[in-house]
Design a protein around this nucleic acid. Sequence first.
DNA 1: CGGAGATCGTTGCCTTGTCAACGATCGGCG
DNA 2: CGCCGATCGTTGACAAGGCAACGATCTCCG
Lengths: 182, 182
Amino acid sequence: MAAPTTTAPLEAPTAVPASPAAIAETPGINAWRTFLHAHARVTRRLDEELQAAHGLSLAEYDALLQIAHAPGRRVRMNVLAERVILSRSGITRLVDRLEADGSVERVACSTDARGQEAVLTPAGLGRLRAAATTHLDGVRRYFLDRLDEAALAGIETSLGRVADPLGPEGKPTHEGCPPADA
Amino acid sequence: MAAPTTTAPLEAPTAVPASPAAIAETPGINAWRTFLHAHARVTRRLDEELQAAHGLSLAEYDALLQIAHAPGRRVRMNVLAERVILSRSGITRLVDRLEADGSVERVACSTDARGQEAVLTPAGLGRLRAAATTHLDGVRRYFLDRLDEAALAGIETSLGRVADPLGPEGKPTHEGCPPADA
DNA sequence: CGGAGATCGTTGCCTTGTCAACGATCGGCG
DNA sequence: CGCCGATCGTTGACAAGGCAACGATCTCCG
């Protein structure tokens, strides 16, 4: 999803003047606008770099990372979807791609015959580690280096409040199908 | 673009343990993660609401808004593209859609025969104003209300630094084709 | 003036991701 | 046990956006 950028509503349809003078009215709206802008710019950059250097999209990188961090280096499709914030079909396709280039394997879940797990292959781990360098470097350059510690802390707690509950999904993430091989 | 969510790299491929214990290593990386998460959640919500209530995507809303704020309620495709952060082809298609439902008209630019301008129609203005209510309400609920003034100010200046130059585009936005009718 | 290169908006083709629908399976209740 | 609704992952059809290429035009420089 490309990320749009602005927000403010408009004046009464008064004459037909032209003055873009009255933009900021809802207090704080500029913070929101800045937020959107920052996200759009940075993620686009990061995605480009990751793609150029390793042929991975940001979403794919993220998925690999999630799998790598999971116990047994395996994750139920299910869970992966919500961790990466993608629909189930989206995850199916993303894992299709990762499987096609050998980064991941699909195995049936031992405790639920409906389930599939995405398991990281050694190749996938290698790819991820290589990509991580690029990615973290980018995050540093575009994000971390521009902010001092206080700002980072502020962002973390502020936006944490924003990211958290946000509606009718209060379920804690249940770990799906803890692998019998651990 | 759905927005991916995580970042951290991994441990040495030690044994094959399973402990996701060592995640945060690059200092500040959590701020980044939180940032991504907050964006993904909030924009998805806002987009859904806007879509449901007015049949507008966030990008379309944004484009309408940009046009409405421009002098003469008209903007060169060109300029619109960079304001909404979309490629030129992306803007062509977005304006196609807006034109199809009568929110916008395309007119040739009087001073540059290559140029097109997107002009807001009265219908488009109406749609925008209706949508603005919904949208601002959402922004308030999901974003502004969760942050106090200090946090908002912090976000604005911090992320402002992040959004700003960000690479080889230092050109100030030139206003394209100031309309002869103003 | 005239030609070379840049810029503008559009288009074809491709990728990514969503939604709705599907078959398979799970879980609970009679 | 047997059925019914919920859940899982996949698929087909589709929307949105990017890239590369195009014709038209502009701009600058000789």
